Amino acid sequence: MQIFVKGLTGKTTTLEVEPSDTIENVKAKIQDKTGLPPDQQRLIFAGKQLEDGRTLSDYNIQKESTLHIVWR
Rank of each mutant, 00 (worst) to 15 (best):
M1E: 01
Q2F: 12
Q2H: 12
Q2S: 10
I3E: 01
I3D: 01
I3W: 01
F4Y: 13
F4C: 04
F4P: 01
F4R: 06
K6Q: 10
K6G: 04
K6L: 09
K6Y: 06
G7H: 12
T9P: 12
T9L: 12
G10L: 09
G10Q: 07
G10I: 13
T12R: 11
T13D: 08
T13V: 15
T14N: 06
T14Y: 07
L15P: 00
L15A: 02
L15H: 03
E16R: 09
E16Y: 13
E16M: 12
E16G: 05
E18I: 11
E18S: 14
E18N: 13
E18H: 14
S20G: 11
S20D: 13
T22H: 04
T22G: 03
I23W: 01
I23Q: 01
E24W: 15
E24G: 11
E24K: 11
E24Q: 11
E24P: 03
N25G: 08
N25P: 00
N25S: 14
V26I: 10
K27V: 02
K27A: 02
A28N: 11
A28T: 09
K29T: 03
K29P: 00
I30Q: 01
Q31F: 15
Q31M: 12
Q31A: 14
Q31T: 10
D32P: 03
D32T: 12
K33D: 05
T34W: 15
T34G: 04
G35C: 05
L36V: 14
L36H: 08
L36P: 03
L36Q: 06
P37L: 09
P38I: 14
P38R: 14
P38Q: 11
Q40R: 13
Q40M: 12
Q41H: 09
Q41G: 05
Q41N: 04
Q41M: 15
Q41T: 15
R42S: 10
L43I: 07
I44P: 00
I44Q: 06
I44L: 09
F45V: 03
A46S: 08
G47Y: 04
G47H: 05
Q49H: 12
L50A: 02
L50P: 01
E51L: 09
E51M: 11
D52H: 06
G53E: 11
G53Q: 10
T55M: 09
T55I: 06
L56C: 03
L56H: 00
L56D: 00
S57K: 11
S57D: 08
D58L: 02
D58Q: 06
D58N: 04
D58T: 04
Y59L: 04
Y59E: 02
N60I: 03
N60W: 04
I61D: 00
I61Q: 01
I61S: 01
Q62T: 14
Q62K: 11
Q62F: 09
Q62N: 08
K63S: 15
K63I: 06
K63N: 15
E64V: 03
E64S: 10
S65P: 01
S65L: 03
T66H: 15
T66C: 05
T66L: 10
L67R: 00
L67G: 01
L67N: 00
H68Q: 11
H68E: 13
H68A: 06
H68S: 08
H68Y: 14
I69L: 15
I69W: 05
I69H: 03
I69N: 06
V70S: 10
V70G: 06
V70Y: 13
W71C: 11
W71K: 10
W71E: 13
R72L: 15
